[in-house]
Design a protein around this nucleic acid. Structure first.
Length: 372
DNA sequence: TATACGTGGCA
DNA sequence: TTGCCAAGTAT
């Protein structure tokens, strides 16, 4: 524990006033989102459902609000309570999550639901530490659930909060090293009451006013307190460590179709990229130069015809897949099964696989998540 | 502390 | 087109 953080001199004392300004702004400008209760309802004693708070927070990790909305509705309609989610077939959860990305979240979702049902009588534990002990719940999510669902004064620090705080206090330490410093500043800024509203207010401010590019400082409730606005350029914050460049990989994907139109799928290994999701047979994905993407590397002999190339960008590499198609006789493969082309959208297919199938069989996967 | 882990939207 | 970004976690 450093005796004196670099920016300590800039915030010698707690700033409850700042927190109150933020809450006043939130009362008038909060976003209405499917997983929220309004601050007015909250003031009347209404509590947010911890299950819905948890589910939304997991979905929102590194994911936009707009992308989450349809999935959140789908999950809560199908599994209204954590008990029902825990009773679900894990494959059905993976299918329902398909397209949202970061699939370990879906696997941990089931593990967490099972634990809460088995070890906590179906109720989320009401402390930050106990929440953080659950699968898929880290520092941020534990604090978010504790504050939003239980009004526990926990320091919620996500990307929005990092941006708001680093600007208001001109934090000169680059992320992620600045995290502890930012957490201290949040703790000093938090009001005594309304922990959940304060956390959501910080995030709404970061999402709508204190945006990464072209923040709307004119409308900001903290404009008189913001050191970045006063001294320099707010967009300079938060400082970030330089990122590495994204390598390229390439491979081939093989879309086999039976005479009745069914497509051959198989299940991916239980660890690593896209773990336990469905795929069409592919080669290994290797560094661009030495990848063999010819039909020589097909999973079995067939009249493979080149359909086209698919590009897909993952977080840590970009992939170019040569896609081949063939009409084949009925057969059985390891970990594989046949799916009617009309039901392909119900499988646990990650987006990259939908792209590959679409390249081989145009219009095969057109049906969108909202209709599914 | 650094790396693996998805996807879609936007300038 | 390319790069950045969006309510992070696990190891």
């Amino acid at each position: 524990m450093p005796a004196s953080p670099p920016t300590a001199s800039k915030s010698p004392c707690p700033q409850p006033l700042l927190g109150q300004k933020l809450l006043d702004w939130y009362d008038r400008h909060h976003r209405d989102l499917p997983w929220r209760t309004t601050p007015a309802a909250h003031a009347k004693g209404e509590r947010a459902d911890p299950y819905r708070v948890w589910l939304s927070e997991i979905m929102l990790q590194q994911t936009t609000v707009e992308a989450v909305k349809a999935y959140f509705r789908k999950f809560t309609e199908r599994w209204p309570t954590i008990t029902e989610l825990s009773a679900a077939d894990p494959d059905d959860i993976m299918k329902a999550w398909a397209g949202l990305g970061y699939y370990s979240r879906a696997r941990n979702l089931k593990k967490c639901a099972d634990l809460v049902v088995a070890a906590h009588q179906g109720k989320f534990p009401e402390s930050e530490a106990a929440l953080k002990a659950l699968p898929g719940i880290g520092d941020y999510t534990a604090a978010a659930i504790a504050s939003i669902a239980f009004d526990i004064p926990a320091a919620v620090v996500d990307g929005n909060v990092e941006r708001v705080i680093s600007r208001v206090f001109t934090v000169e330490t680059p992320l992620p090293a600045a995290k502890p410093e930012i957490r201290e500043l949040v703790a000093a800024t938090m009001p005594e009451a309304r922990a959940g509203d304060f956390a959501q207010a910080m995030m709404d401010l970061g999402a709508t006013i204190c945006t990464p590019k072209r923040p709307v400082c004119l409308h900001c409730p903290l404009r008189d307190d913001c050191l970045a606005l006063r001294q320099t350029d707010p967009e300079r914050y938060p400082l970030k460590a330089p990122k590495k460049e994204r390598p390229s990989r390439q491979g081939a994907a093989f879309v086999a179709q039976r005479s009745d139109g069914a497509v051959l799928l198989r299940k991916r290994p239980s660890s690593g990229l896209l773990a336990e999701m469905a795929e069409v047979p592919t080669t290994a994905w290797t560094a661009k130069q030495d990848g063999d993407t010819s039909t020589n590397s097909a999973p079995f002999a067939a009249a493979w015809r080149f359909s086209g190339q698919v590009k897909h960008v993952f977080t840590h590499f970009e992939l170019r897949l040569d896609v081949y198609h063939a009409s084949v006789p009925d057969m059985v493969i390891q970990n594989g099964w046949w799916t009617p082309i009309t039901e392909i959208h119900e499988e646990a297919l990650p987006t990259v696989m939908k792209k590959a199938i679409e390249a081989a069989i145009p219009s095969a996967t057109k049906r969108s998540i909202k209709q599914a």
